[in-house]
Design a protein around this nucleic acid. Structure first.
Lengths: 293, 293
DNA sequence: AACCCCACGTGCGCAA
DNA sequence: TTGCGCACGTGGGGTT
């Protein structure tokens, strides 16, 4: 609702880019702008307001316009017209034409040149242009950035930055988790916990060794007290093996119990063993789901 | 090497947030600064040249500082003192002291107030403060952002932004791949290929439909010619089900064959079926490793 | 010499 | 009203 108002000012304009279909863009609601953003990449700075009758003094003349950047810097467009001032509200309505141009500022740096010590006339003034260009570049990048980060609401420069940071961190972490949990987790030291009694929340983060070295290859005496749980975890990924008697809903019960924690299940395998018992293998990883998506 | 010089200038500092511990910041070489960034947060204003008898005029006084942001904004620092004027170049040399102060600008808005139409004295001047604050906030965020994106070299504002965008895109894509491969791929349209004869390299990238519409729920007549292979894939992830006769090394043979392609195996499950046949389920994903990390 | 990049102060529009 | 946010012009340091 509040959006950002004159963000469009520095968004310069979108125009192009028919990607998604959204309709209505009464006023560019930033949000909408964000979607069209990529257009801005190309359009960039079609402004180039080189003219300005600037009657005060200074010849300007120049025509220098030495821009190292690709892109078109001076292809007319704006230059001449800027609506009286911030006329952007008078959108011609439904027509798809991009009317928000940018408005290369009036160029009439009014009370400026007084007290100019050693500025050689227009030289200084093209520094102005350079700066303007720089600003536009940055702002374009801002829009681009805001494009790729989801759930952006406020559209401040500051907000964009911090949200971007947060989002990057989130992605990094999530990615790391997935990489670890997915398949990469080789040679990562894994701790092993063996639970005999149906302790629901068995030793969480206890630094103790607690290995117990359960019999690796000898399944002897393993089905006397059947609810036997074996947990193996490393970092964010967990492996649970449950050996229990084969009643009706055990599998789903275990599964849902796992999911009731913060764990998201990567894989589960349940198979019968010895006629009346059941072995359930589960691998899962711990991470909070994103507010996005 | 070239770094960015006065980046430190805008690194300024936020205050608050003592998170990581970093030490030493000889001169902020940007790069180094990026690493120590958080440190800078703390170091901040331990300098604080408290003096500057701004004789000119202006009361300022105010003390308004109504900030909605969390964090500590007015814990002294800025406001009153500013060093004589941009003295930051006169660093005390080699000493390890962090000379990067910030320099809350000279506050001597020299020729300023001339031609002030309707500004009620210091009211305008605290707008200055507000703006200054805003800028600091943004710059802080910039540093924070640059912190989380790896391989950052240039440290421009513009570069930071674009690199951040690029990095986010990269992360997103990579994550999407992993998610698809790992387990997430629900409801993604998957094509199904059913191979009857032991074609080793069955239809690779042939654009043909080749669906064959294998019987979805009816496994009838599925064990006459046993080497039966069923492939189901979507995007980068593949699922292979092999139903074959139970000879000695089939499992490993299939597995190795899978890995011989670009596929990395996510999960495999092999189980006997009907005494003399074997069912092998494999899920794998195809992707190239990342340049990062 | 050019160029870049930056921070500053300032005016202006927009919302609470 | 007053605060918030932005773009602008400008001086100035840094690198080529």
């Amino acid at each position: 609702m509040e959006d950002t108002s004159q963000f469009i000012n520095w968004a310069t304009n979108p125009g192009a880019a028919a990607d998604h279909e959204f309709s209505e863009a009464a006023f560019p609601s930033l949000q909408a702008l964000r979607e069209a953003s990529h257009a801005a990449e190309m359009v960039q700075e079609l402004i180039a307001g080189v003219h300005a009758p600037n009657s005060w003094s200074s010849d300007n003349g120049d025509g220098a316009a030495n821009n190292n950047l690709p892109a078109s810097w001076n292809f007319g467009a704006t230059s001449a017209q800027q609506p009286g001032s911030n006329g952007m509200m008078e959108a011609p309505a439904a027509s798809g034409l991009p009317d928000l141009v940018y408005e290369p500022p009036p160029t009439r740096r009014a009370g400026g040149l007084r007290s100019m010590g050693s500025m050689s006339a227009s030289y200084a003034q093209d520094h102005i242009m350079a700066e303007r260009k720089r600003r536009e570049k940055i702002n374009t990048r801002f829009v681009e950035l805001s494009t790729v980060i989801p759930g952006l609401k406020k559209m401040d420069k500051a907000t964009i930055l911090s949200d971007a940071t947060r989002y990057v961190k989130e992605l990094q972490e999530k990615l790391k988790d997935l990489e670890a949990g997915g398949s990469g987790g080789r040679s990562i030291e894994t701790r092993l916990v063996l639970v005999k009694r149906p302790y629901l929340h068995a030793a969480a983060d206890d630094g103790s060794p607690l290995l117990s070295s359960a019999s690796p290859g000898t399944p002897t005496a393993a089905r006397k007290e059947l609810p036997e749980i074996e947990v193996r975890f490393s970092e964010k990924s967990v492996m649970v093996r449950v050996h229990c008697e084969n009643s009706k809903g055990v599998a789903v019960k275990v599964l849902t119990e796992i999911e009731k924690l913060q764990l998201t299940i990567i894989h589960a395998n349940v198979m019968p063993f010895l006629a009346c018992s059941l072995i359930i293998d589960i691998t899962a990883k711990a991470s909070f789901s994103s507010p996005f998506d």
